[in-house]
Write a protein that binds this DNA or RNA. Structure first.
Lengths: 229, 229
DNA sequence: CAGTGGTCTAGACCACGCT
DNA sequence: GCGTGGTCTAGACCACTGG
């Protein structure tokens, strides 16, 4: 290796991505042995790059035949990552926030955040996400109070950047069909009594400890929930 | 290697799974170097095993620290695999099936199966899935007629085994909130006018060709749709 | 037959954490 | 300073495909 901070296999991965952008679906890429020569790397290093690209849905392998460019529409997507996008675009308004006692909420949050009597206060933030200026979802975000610093409260947008929590943790999502709550129908500019999907998300650290709980009410006319695997 | 048909890294993987079953969450497993000695394998082979277990959510790594047993509730799940379960359990009834012209359906199926004038007939099967005897979902399954053999029509349950298509292909799913259609409310023993999630799935081969299109209406009281990533 | 991906080895150096 | 996972090398043999 060299002094570079970026591993060689990630550089190779990026170069392969660039190369296949100009290639038709189902066309073969060079063989692993050829790529190893081309990139002056060992075959195992090239395989590491290709493995990740296969995992992410950019390529697929056929044993004894070769490695081929996958259809772009097969690239793996996951609803969990959609949460990130609302951060990336940063296109949202904070409607409301306050600290609450768990017992004052309309539902029992304690199982989701594994709260106990010692630690039963949460920070509740309601935000309205937009795509291209139109309201796409309302999210109720719940943080455990002891997880939130005074600094965070002053900078909620920083706190609401859940990206690093997600990439270093685990996200479980449950999908519930519900009639849109009246107060959110208004925010989302929807008629009352229409069905929407409420996504309940729990973000946990790798050791299983819950960090954040989210209820998202999605505007079905703005964003279809889609996953590819 | 030896004469064994099963690769060593898969054997090691199974042994690691067995070992961690008795270990508490977040406890460390042996280091890769120790495991290599223990299993009489090279470290790269052990890493291959562990990589898959991490990918599947059984273990997690911490750089410079070790590899640890992950929380079982964090094991990665995907709604696509739920389709398999309805096959595995085999607990379903076929309500109806017939060949249809694409233009005779209530909606335009041609974009989903990429049909053309030459090949515009489909086999439509409606099945009622059950869990523990209770109705959990109604699925409308659409196959391209030219994809279905006479043999298949005689053995629909074999055709409806979508397992091999999914593991060798790609699944895209879209989630739609809808009011349960009246004819399905009856089948699912639901009241009319309640909201449910309709999952639209397209199974494609690796080269992107659509093979099967499915509309599933899920009974929210029997099965919560959940994914972990 | 040559070429492919799949598996495997026995080393190596690195950055980082912990004691 | 020792142990960890992360990266990397330069080989090797296998089963299988396709000309």
């Amino acid at each position: 290796m060299s002094i570079l901070a970026i591993p060689k296999y990630l550089e190779i991965k990026e170069q392969i991505i660039d190369e296949i952008k100009g290639k038709p679906v189902n066309s073969p890429i060079s063989s692993e042995r050829d790529l190893a020569i081309q990139f002056d790397a060992s075959r195992m290093t090239v395989r590491n790059s290709i493995n990740e690209l296969v995992e992410e849905g950019y390529l697929y392998r056929e044993k004894n035949k070769g490695t081929f460019v996958a259809d772009k529409k097969l690239i793996k997507k996951n609803t969990a990552t959609e949460i990130l996008q609302s951060y990336d675009s940063n296109d949202y308004s904070i409607i409301y926030f306050s600290f609450k006692n768990a017992e004052d909420l309309e539902f029992d949050i304690t199982p989701f955040l594994e709260l106990d009597e010692e630690d039963s206060r949460v920070l509740r933030i309601v935000r309205l996400n937009k795509t291209e200026g139109r309201p796409s979802s309302v999210e109720e975000v719940y943080f455990i109070k002891s997880f939130v610093s005074d600094e965070d409260v002053k900078n909620l947008r920083n706190l609401l950047n859940l990206n690093h929590l997600i990439v270093n943790g685990s996200v479980t999502q449950r999908f519930h069909p519900v009639i849109i709550p009246a107060q959110y129908a208004n925010l989302l500019k929807l008629k009352i009594n229409i069905p929407v999907i409420m996504i309940e998300s729990t973000i946990r650290s790798m050791n299983g400890k819950p960090l954040v709980y989210i209820r998202a009410y999605n505007n079905p006319f703005e964003k279809t929930i889609e996953i590819t695997s």
